[in-house]
């Protein structure tokens, strides 16, 4: 090596070698705890996950057990923290068990809609041409329908139930993913590092999977976390309208539906599931907002 190169070499500051994984997890939490909204969202999500996994074991009562002698008990009476409903079932237990429905639907719909939307978005954005035109017109047509209306129509066709509501919500929700991923891919494919890949001789397939896909991860995570909240609310709306999870199986949406007849006499029937929905959606959104704020600057190159 020549003198010049040697000099350049020794100018480098000595670097500490840190374990990559350790430092990135540490940075994640250090960053998270700096924002109280993000922390709050994170805690709510953790709580939600805990309840939906261990729900059946931590409920104070059987959520399906009806005791007519104890119907419509107000909160804090007779050992029922949040009261009982019109059939004498414990509301707290039903909310805890209902959390699982919301989480399953929120996560599964996002996964299904996300995968489908991402595939469509990538095909559209990367290959362009007439495929892009056709796919995006389909997206346009679908976006011109109100989301809830579309979901209800699909549900009316394929029927109610947990599986069908996931299908209908995914069909209603994939377009947002397709649109966003397409625009992201369009921006990425013009980036100079992609041109550099072409110049190196990387195949189109490899450019897509090794270079474009990893760069889509961040926007996907952000959109997915924000969409979970939307889907939880949508599920509640659809269940409220009677298309979702069928009684007596508890879900926050159908608890609202059953409770609405008693809104003037027994407010707790509708209030507590409503609060549960708000907290879940809020938590997911707070966390999603924080994620976007933290990850987006990194997205822009640095």
């Amino acid at each position: 090596m020549s003198a010049n190169l040697e000099k350049a070499f020794h100018n480098e500051p000595a670097a500490k070698i840190k374990s990559k994984k350790e430092s990135s997890i540490y940075r994640f939490f250090a960053n998270l705890f700096r924002s109280w909204t993000g922390t709050l969202g994170f805690i709510i999500i953790l709580g939600l996950l805990f309840i939906s996994i261990f729900g059946p074991w931590i409920t104070p009562y059987d959520p399906l057990y009806a005791d007519f002698s104890k119907k419509l008990l107000p909160p804090m009476t007779d050992g029922h923290l949040l009261g009982t409903d019109q059939l004498g079932r414990d509301i707290l237990s039903r909310i805890i068990v209902g959390a699982r429905v919301s989480v399953i639907i929120g996560v599964l719909t996002v996964v299904i809609a996300g995968i489908f939307g991402t595939v469509v978005g990538i095909i559209s954005g990367y290959f362009r041409g007439w495929v892009d035109v056709v796919l995006m017109r389909i997206v346009d047509v679908q976006l011109s329908f109100p989301f809830i209306l579309l979901v209800l129509v699909i549900n009316a066709i394929i029927g109610a139930g947990l599986r069908n509501i996931i299908i209908s919500l995914a069909i209603g929700g994939w377009v947002i993913f397709a649109r966003m991923i397409r625009s992201e891919v369009l921006a990425l494919r013009e980036k100079e590092f992609i041109t550099a890949c072409v110049a190196t001789g990387v195949s189109r397939f490899e450019i897509l999977f090794r270079h474009i896909l990893p760069n889509l991860f961040t926007p996907l995570i952000i959109l997915a976390s924000l969409q979970i909240g939307t889907f939880i609310i949508a599920e509640a709306s659809v269940s409220f309208l009677g298309f979702g999870v069928q009684p007596p199986e508890p879900a926050w949406g159908n608890m609202l539906n059953e409770g609405k007849d008693y809104i003037f006499s027994s407010w707790w029937l509708i209030t507590f599931p409503g609060i549960a929905i708000i907290i879940a959606a809020l938590g997911v959104n707070l966390f999603g907002d924080w994620l976007r704020d933290t990850l987006d600057p990194e997205l822009k190159g640095e």
Partner: peptide, 29 residues
């Protein structure tokens, strides 16, 4: 035939380590 690009901030994939960036040409060919 290879190319060196103008903007060193835009021509390297931000999600790839130096190892991956430099191994890629050898792997591809």
């Amino acid at each position: 035939m290879q190319m060196v690009f103008q903007d060193p901030y835009a021509s390297l994939n931000p999600k790839k380590t130096v190892r991956e960036i430099l191994t890629e040409p050898l792997r591809v060919h």
